[in-house]
């Protein structure tokens, strides 16, 4: 029981990171029906920027805030400059652009900062709490807390602000959104900006755990895909829950199913994706095909 509780907490903590990345994917998918394969590398690149800022002597949280701001403008710029020209092209074209972005960011980071692992400072204390025999790492709680706070802020933004509502309207049906006076192309760019912010948060939170290197997000992105697929690519809340579930499942299966361990955990992620696509393609929380026409 004690072991189970401990695994649950560890799983929720990594799950929160998957959930953030999954949410970033969904934010873009919802408004443009494009899966942004570069989401992980954008997050990685942002994390390197944070590392550079901290390395230059900036306090952690200031560097974090500045990184998020830069990530936001980076996301908006990428949409305006690279995605918008191909917006009306086939989905395949856009996918190729995002895969191209993936390679660009990966090589750029490698070129600037090199491919060797770097340590990334953690903003959280490395200590633990003991609650009736269960050991809780403060790092896990911190990661979970920050990720959850960010997602809560986004939920408030989309639910209660005029701008958030306008972004949702644009994602649902673009032409009437324009008739409401919404500048829809800017809403799409804003979606990319927010997704970049959420991704950067995931990168900065995970970097102290996995070390920083240009390939750090590739495995994570697969787990995020599994989470988004499980929860439903059409549903932000679902994607968050899916990410958390994948994190918990990974921790549990890795521990209780001895032949899988940590070596085969990516296989588990792939298995989740395939099983969901076969048995419930819309995910647990997605509605049946409300496609944009």
């Amino acid at each position: 029981m004690r072991e189970f509780a401990q695994l649950l907490i560890a799983g929720l903590s990594t799950g929160a990171i998957y959930a953030s990345l999954a949410l970033a994917l969904v934010l873009i998918y919802q408004s443009t029906e494009v899966v942004n394969f570069a989401q992980g590398e954008m997050a990685m690149f942002s994390t390197f920027i944070a590392w550079e800022l901290i390395d230059k002597g900036m306090p952690f949280w200031a560097a974090f805030a500045l990184t998020l701001a830069l990530a936001f403008f980076g996301g908006v710029t990428i949409e305006r400059v690279l995605i918008r020209p191909v917006e009306k092209a086939s989905v395949l074209t856009i996918v190729i652009v995002t895969v191209g972005l993936l390679l660009i960011f990966n090589n750029l980071a490698g070129g600037i900062w090199g491919f060797q692992l770097k340590t990334f400072p953690s903003p959280f204390p490395s200590g633990t709490w003991q609650v009736s025999g269960v050991v809780i790492s403060q790092q896990s709680v911190g990661v979970f807390g920050v990720a959850l706070l960010l997602m809560a802020l986004l939920a408030v933004f989309f639910r209660f602000t005029a701008l958030g509502l306008a972004m949702r309207a644009t994602a649902m049906n673009r032409e009437p959104a324009e008739l409401m006076g919404i500048h829809t192309t800017w809403m799409l760019a804003l979606g990319w900006g927010l997704a970049a912010v959420v991704g950067a948060t995931a990168g900065v939170l995970v970097a102290p755990i996995v070390f920083l290197d240009p390939n750090m997000m590739q495995g994570l992105l697969l787990f995020a895909f599994a989470g988004a697929t499980l929860g439903g690519f059409e549903s932000p809340g679902g994607a968050v829950l899916g990410g958390l579930l994948v994190g918990v499942a990974q921790a549990m299966i890795g521990n209780y199913v001895s032949f899988i361990g940590t070596d085969l955990s990516l296989t588990v992620a792939m298995a989740i994706i395939v099983l969901v696509l076969v048995f419930k393609p819309t995910g647990l929380f997605g509605q049946a095909a409300a496609r944009r026409v």
């Binding site: 306008a166 049906n173 409401m180």
Partner: peptide
């Protein structure tokens, strides 16, 4: 518009608020 073109997943009130965007 022809065919109403409402934001069907949003509430009545949210649709009206969007009208005043």
């Amino acid at each position: 518009p022809e065919g109403r073109q409402l934001f069907t997943a949003l509430t009545v009130e949210q649709n009206l608020r969007l009208g005043a965007f």
